[in-house]
Computed example of a mutant assay.
Amino acid sequence: MRAANQICNTPQAAHLCGVFARSRHPESCYRPVTGRDVLETIRQHYVYNTSVRKALMARYVLRRLIQAVVTLAIVVSLTFVFGRLSGSPAAILLTENAPQSQIDALNHRLGFDLPIWQQYLNYMGGVLHGDFGDSYRQPGVPSMQLVFERIPASFQLGFAGLAVGLLLALIAAVSIHLTGRRSLRTVFLGFGSLRQAIPDFFFGLLLVLVFSVWLGALPSLGNADWRAMIMPVLTIATGQFVVYTRLMDNALSEQSVSDYTRTAYARGERHSTVVLTETLPNALLPVLTVAGINLGTFLGGLVIVENVFAWPGLGQLMLGAVYSRDFPVVQSALIIIAVIFVVANLLVDLIYGLVDPRVRLS
């Protein structure tokens, strides 16, 4: 009897005790199930599941953080190697007739006379301490300071172009599904494909030729006036238009045949109401995910647009630093772009891990 009492006191066997207590052999169990036993079983089950979810999420976050750190280390190493492969900056920083002694002195001051492995260790040590080196063109000015001064202008232009591109794609995709006309889809996707076939620099020059040279309506250079943003933003937005239009169109088509959409139609909802309130919110999720993942690549692609319109952003700074072999500035700019790209991907992964438990288990 004492052994049966010990067995039945465990929450896992409590439900069996209730069954045996009402059977023809009540001596096989000491007591029936009580409400306290049921609550204790539920509590232990909840605590176990919560601890398992926390452990899986912690492991998932740790794995993603390790991948992010490894990615940044690879980017920093590659920028260092490619920068050194282009040669010493002394040939550009000094005059053509500079004596060899002056070139050797400059290489010694910049550390280019050391072995490549020692240069790499010195650079990585400085990066770990937050020292990315001073600009070669502007001695005494930290390279990261120059990069941070240009980031706001690039963010302003990049996010404006991305927002306008997403808005145009949203209008096009919703118009296609509200009207149900295939001809409208052909027009939008045809225009987007034609625009995507034109390089950004050539499309930007066409806008300058039409709106600045012929019409004189918009400024073509700089960012002194808000109107100066119109042509760069149009160049960026139209270049991304067809990509997001296709994504949103496909997502709306998939959501339109789902069960909840059929239920909405069965309730007597109008077609426009179903599209705008039922299918559209769910169709936006994959589009915003792709936009977040492409954010780092998108900011890196602003180099061409910023140079066409003389926009004082990170892209213009990078191109000038490449021409002058200002390695610290180039490396700092690439590191910032890599950090933005890695952080955007990390946030997307973490959000997916919170929403979908299957991602944490993979």
Rank of each mutant, 00 (worst) to 15 (best):
F132S: 11
N97I: 14
S88C: 06
P152G: 07
P139G: 06
P99V: 01
Q119T: 06
P142H: 03
F148Y: 11
H108K: 13
L128K: 03
G130V: 01
R109Y: 07
L94F: 04
D113E: 03
H129Q: 15
P139M: 08
A98I: 05
V141N: 04
I92H: 07
S135Q: 03
W117I: 15
L106K: 02
L93N: 08
I116A: 09
L93W: 04
L85T: 05
S135E: 05
M124H: 06
D104E: 05
F112S: 04
D134Q: 13
R150E: 06
D134M: 01
F132N: 07
Q138F: 09
G130H: 07
V141E: 03
Q138L: 12
H129W: 12
Y120N: 01
I151C: 00
I92C: 03
E149Q: 15
N107F: 02
L146Q: 06
W117Y: 14
I92S: 05
M144F: 15
D113H: 03
A90R: 08
D104H: 09
A91R: 15
D134S: 15
Q145T: 04
A91S: 14
Q102F: 09
F132G: 03
L128C: 10
E96P: 01
L114N: 10
E149H: 09
F132T: 13
M124R: 12
N107I: 00
W117G: 12
E149D: 13
G83W: 13
D113A: 00
S88D: 05
W117V: 15
S101H: 01
G126R: 13
P152R: 10
D113I: 05
S86Y: 11
D113P: 03
L128W: 11
T95N: 15
P142V: 07
G125Q: 08
G125N: 09
L114I: 10
S86T: 14
A90G: 00
S101A: 12
I151D: 00
E149A: 14
L121Y: 11
I92W: 03
G111W: 09
L128T: 01
L121S: 05
L146F: 02
M124F: 15
Q118C: 01
A105Y: 00
A98F: 09
G126W: 12
Q119Y: 11
Q118R: 14
A90C: 01
L121C: 02
G126E: 12
